[in-house]
């Protein structure tokens, strides 16, 4: 057999190989093409279309538009809109991500204790994450209403007036941050809990034997070992916060003080202004921010992560 193999001419072997490669390529295309077409049509086509629209002065609903090149971007970055929108986005993102991560970790530490009712508590903590954003927004809107809301009733009971949660732009942003942290901390808690339960016991025991107290064990051993979990949560929470929309739309429909990048893009096109081209430019800015943040996280944050 070996002799026969050696007798097969080189050209014939190559032809067989290329025929097989062709067959495999056609099989690959047959399997992948439907998905490629769908992704290209429903993901990349709108993306490219949006970039094209961002170069137009186009009123939503109008059949005509004027090409303005980079005019929408210039206006966004020179009119003061960028400063306001980006600062609101930064405050909202940092507060919601930071709040959900810190509180989620604290809740996870509590849930990690072997106490009666821990399973029920875990379910209760996780429940808000799977609730509909619209429903959550409506319920919290009732709670925060300064006239007949549940919170104002409680405050009146202790002789305090309700803050103007909805009318005051600064408080409206605080209100949204509270709701988003409440909704997302359960997710962080459950992921952190899984991380805590997979930590190596021998390392913790060694730290105890060396005389480390509970806080030092957590800060110097557990927390660094949880860094892959923290990194994962940081990425997912950041992307989720930058794309937060439903609760903002329900609780502050006109965006007074709550115009994050994504919500401002919505308001400009579909709210009062109907500036579809300008809105598309803001969407492109959001896309670039998301791309840059993901790149930075992968480039720099991952280096600090300790994998066990």
């Amino acid at each position: 057999m070996t002799g026969m193999d050696k007798s097969i001419p080189l050209g014939r072997t190559k032809r067989h190989a290329s025929a097989r490669a062709r067959r495999e390529a056609w099989v690959f295309l047959a399997l992948a093409l439907p998905n490629i077409v769908l992704i290209a049509f429903f993901t990349y086509r709108p993306l490219l279309l949006n970039m094209y629209y961002s170069t137009l002065d186009w009123t939503l609903g109008s059949m005509d538009a004027v090409v303005v090149g980079l005019g929408n971007y210039v206006e966004f970055f020179t009119s003061g809109d960028a400063e306001e929108v980006l600062s609101i986005t930064a405050i909202f993102t940092v507060a919601t991500v930071g709040g959900a991560l810190v509180l989620g970790l604290l809740v996870a530490l509590v849930l990690n204790k072997k106490v009666p009712g821990a399973t029920l508590a875990r379910s209760a903590v996780f429940a808000p994450y799977v609730l509909s954003g619209v429903g959550v927004g409506l319920v919290w809107l009732f709670i925060f209403d300064p006239v007949y809301g549940a919170l104002s009733w409680v405050l009146r009971g202790i002789g305090l007036a309700s803050p103007q949660w909805i009318n005051d732009p600064n408080l409206a942003l605080v209100m949204l941050i509270i709701v988003y942290v409440w909704k997302n901390l359960g997710y962080c808690a459950v992921v952190y809990l899984a991380g805590l339960q997979s930590l190596p016991k021998d390392v913790m025991e060694a730290a105890s034997l060396d005389g480390a107290g509970a806080f030092r064990r957590f800060w110097l051993v557990s927390f660094p070992l949880l860094s892959p979990t923290t990194f994962f949560l940081l990425i997912t929470s950041l992307l989720s916060s930058l794309q937060a929309f439903d609760i903002i739309k329900i609780m502050t429909p006109t965006g007074n003080g709550t115009g994050t990048l994504i919500f401002e893009a919505y308001l400009q096109a579909f709210g009062a202004y109907n500036r579809a081209g300008y809105s598309a430019a803001i969407s492109v800015v959001l896309f670039v921010v998301l791309l840059a943040m993901t790149g930075m996280q992968l480039r720099f944050v991952e280096r600090k992560v300790h994998y066990s």
């Binding site: 490629i36 990349y44 709108p46 490219l48 094209y52 137009l56 109008s62 538009a65 090409v67």
Partner: peptide
């Protein structure tokens, strides 16, 4: 012509370009 990775990527790129051009069908300028 053999279908290799380079050809496939080129074809995909052309397809995307065509889609991009086809996409420019919004408001009239």
């Amino acid at each position: 012509t053999d279908i290799n990775r380079r050809n496939l990527l080129a074809a995909a790129g052309l397809g995307m370009g065509a889609l991009a051009l086809a996409a420019c069908g919004g408001p009239s300028t």
